[in-house]
Simulated assay, not measured.
Amino acid sequence: MARVTAELLARTAAELADESGFGNLTVSAVARRLGVKDPSLYAHIANARDLKTRVALLALDELADRVAEALAGRSGRDALVAFAGAYRAYAHEHPGRYAATRFPLDAETAAASAAPRHSAMTRALLRGYGLPEPDETDAVRFLGSVFHGFVSLEATGGFAHTPRETDASWAWLLDTVDAALWSRRPGNA
Rank of each mutant, 00 (worst) to 15 (best):
Y98P: 09
G158A: 08
S113N: 03
A68G: 15
R77C: 06
D78S: 12
L63V: 13
V140Q: 07
A84I: 04
G130V: 05
A79M: 04
P163E: 13
G85F: 06
R77A: 15
A86E: 10
D138T: 13
G128N: 11
L71T: 08
A72I: 05
G73H: 02
R97L: 11
D106F: 01
L63S: 13
L63C: 13
T122L: 10
P95R: 10
A111Q: 06
R97S: 12
S113C: 06
E93Y: 07
L80K: 02
R102S: 14
V81M: 03
R66W: 08
E93G: 12
F142I: 08
S119M: 12
S113T: 03
L153E: 12
A70Y: 06
A82Q: 07
L63T: 12
A70R: 06
A114L: 10
S75I: 04
A64H: 06
D78R: 06
E136Q: 15
L63M: 14
L105R: 00
R97D: 12
A110L: 12
E154D: 14
T122I: 09
D135V: 14
H161R: 14
D135W: 07
A70K: 06
S75Y: 00
V81G: 03
L105M: 07
F159C: 04
S119R: 15
P134F: 01
Y129Q: 09
D135R: 14
F83R: 06
R164S: 10
A100T: 10
R102G: 14
G144I: 07
A110I: 03
R123L: 07
T137F: 01
A91G: 15
A160M: 00
A115F: 10
V151K: 01
A110N: 00
D138H: 14
T162I: 11
E154W: 02
G76T: 01
L63G: 12
V67H: 08
F103Q: 08
P116V: 04
L80E: 02
T156K: 11
R127D: 15
V81Q: 02
A79N: 00
F83T: 04
A79C: 07
S152P: 03
G157A: 02
L143R: 04
G85W: 05
P104M: 05
A120R: 13
V151H: 05
A100D: 10
G96W: 06
Y98V: 09
R74N: 03
D65S: 14
R88C: 11
P163F: 02
E93S: 13
F103C: 06
A110V: 03
R123H: 01
G157I: 02
A68N: 11
S113Q: 02
H161N: 12
L131K: 03
F150P: 06
Y98A: 11
H161A: 13
A124T: 15
G73K: 00
G85V: 08
A114P: 08
A84S: 15
H161P: 01
T156C: 08
A100S: 11
F147G: 05
A68T: 12
S152W: 07
A114K: 06
S145P: 04
R66H: 09
L71A: 13
G130L: 07
A110H: 02
A120I: 05
S145G: 15
H118C: 11
R102P: 04
H92Y: 09
A84E: 04
L143V: 09
